[in-house]
């Protein structure tokens, strides 16, 4: 089991809606194994259960049934809570809700300070984290004057400074403009490829899934599709039925095939389609 960063076994999660007696099933019998070093993307429309899944992955929520292991530690084990959170860090949607300090570098230092790390070591980690997200020149700035993409990179640096092996990002680009989105996508890629972090990236933007090693699609608390980005997106009808998009060129290739034109089904980019035609 050591090759897995996160392992979920028969996980169920139920919650009760306000003022109602009935239990609602947010997650239903899920089995997932995230390999060390993997870049996993979880897709699903709003309400499909993907954020609940994320919170189960570092013990913010505990499963109603089944077990979640983070680097072999069960999230139900109270003694391990801090170890688990240090292993799997989490980045949320709204960067404004994740800022705690009035200066960028102090914000990044907040995590390691709470871990009781000596201050020289904190200094080193903060500098390193800001370098990785390319925000070093802003270290003395006030976070509220940064752009959305910059704020979100500071939030990622704050997690990096705690040196987790795994980073879980829950719709990190949903509130950003196109430039901010590109900044975050390239940061995530760097964290995975260069810093060798295991990445679990939750999103409803399909174009962010194109570079993943593996994609899971969720619907009503269950995993309904699994595969490489190409395998997933070539199933145009099914993906659309699940309330998600495919790239426009993938859709065009699919439509042309339906008309009997002979081109490959697994087209993801403009260049691939130009070549195929």
């Amino acid at each position: 089991m050591e090759q897995y960063m996160i392992k979920m076994e028969n996980v169920k999660y139920e919650y009760s809606s306000m003022g109602e007696d009935s239990q609602l099933m947010a997650i239903n019998s899920i089995n997932i194994a995230v390999k060390k070093g993997e870049h996993l993307v979880i897709l699903g429309h709003n309400g499909s259960g993907k954020s609940t899944l994320a919170k189960l992955m570092n013990g913010l929520l505990l499963p109603t049934e089944g077990n979640v292991y983070v680097n072999n530690m069960n999230t139900k084990d109270e003694d391990k809570v801090w170890d688990i959170r240090e292993t799997a860090g989490m980045v949320f949607q709204n960067p404004d809700n994740q800022m705690v300090a009035t200066i960028v570098e102090e914000d990044v230092a907040f995590g390691p300070e709470n871990q009781g790390i000596p201050s020289l070591e904190i200094r080193k980690r903060v500098d390193e984290a800001l370098r990785i997200v390319e925000m070093t020149e802003y270290k003395k700035h006030a976070p509220h004057l940064l752009s959305g993409g910059q704020k979100q990179r500071v939030a990622i640096a704050g997690i990096l400074a705690m040196r987790p092996d795994c980073i879980i990002l829950d719709e990190p680009t949903a509130m950003l403009d196109p430039i901010g989105r590109l900044e975050i996508i390239s940061t995530i890629k760097k964290l995975n490829k260069i810093e060798k972090k295991t990445i679990v990236h939750i999103t409803h933007y399909m174009d962010e899934a194109v570079e993943a090693d593996r994609v899971l699609v969720m619907e009503q608390g269950e995993i309904v599709m699994e595969g490489t980005p190409r395998e997933i997106f070539s199933q145009v009808e099914k993906v659309k039925r699940l309330g998600l998009d495919v790239p426009q060129v993938t859709e065009l290739a699919y439509e042309l095939r339906k008309e009997g034109i002979n081109i490959p089904s697994q087209i993801l980019t403009v260049e691939e389609l130009v070549k195929a035609l």
């Binding site: 790239p247 426009q248 060129v249 403009v270 389609l273 130009v274």
Partner: peptide, 25 residues
């Protein structure tokens, strides 16, 4: 520009005689 518009432009540049003012799939 939309991905589909970008595709049609590139395809035309390759010497194919297609319109390059396409907006939808």
């Amino acid at each position: 520009i939309p991905q589909i518009t970008s595709f049609m432009r590139k395809y035309k540049l390759e010497g194919n005689k297609v319109r390059d003012d396409i907006l939808t799939v």
